[in-house]
Amino acid sequence: LNSKGIWFTYVIFVFTMHLILLSLPFLSTAVAWTLTNVLHNVAAFYLLHIVKGAPWETSDQGKARSYTYWEQIDDGVQFTATRKFLTTVPIVLFLMASFYTKYDPTHFFINVSTLIVVLIAKLPQLHGVR
């Protein structure tokens, strides 16, 4: 996650997903943005905070097996650049979704609730907490 180009790839993937949603004629722009935000947060929460271990044999005698992907980043060191980037993306997405939904209360509530879930999971106090 801190190798060159992967942040760029991550942003491209989110943007492509949004374009695909935007191209569905029966979705309005507001719904497309809220869907982008929600789908991103759900996928990020599942990949970073639910799945444990690594999808390949690691050479650390299974130590990483009980850690989530987020806890394995940079060997558990907090506030690294990668972690800051992964925390910033959902926030920026939320701000853009709020803007494009013209701060409609319903959309706002949906967006902020998924945002809170992914942000709480990233708190250093919850490292290793089950």
Binding site: S3, K4, G5, I6, F8, T9, I12, F13, P55
Partner: peptide
């Protein structure tokens, strides 16, 4: 020679599609 951004993007696209 560090890989170009395009190559990195394609590689991660490959892994994402394989993962899906």
């Amino acid at each position: 020679e560090s890989p170009s951004r395009l190559q990195v993007f394609y590689t991660h696209l490959c892994y994402t599609i394989l993962e899906v």
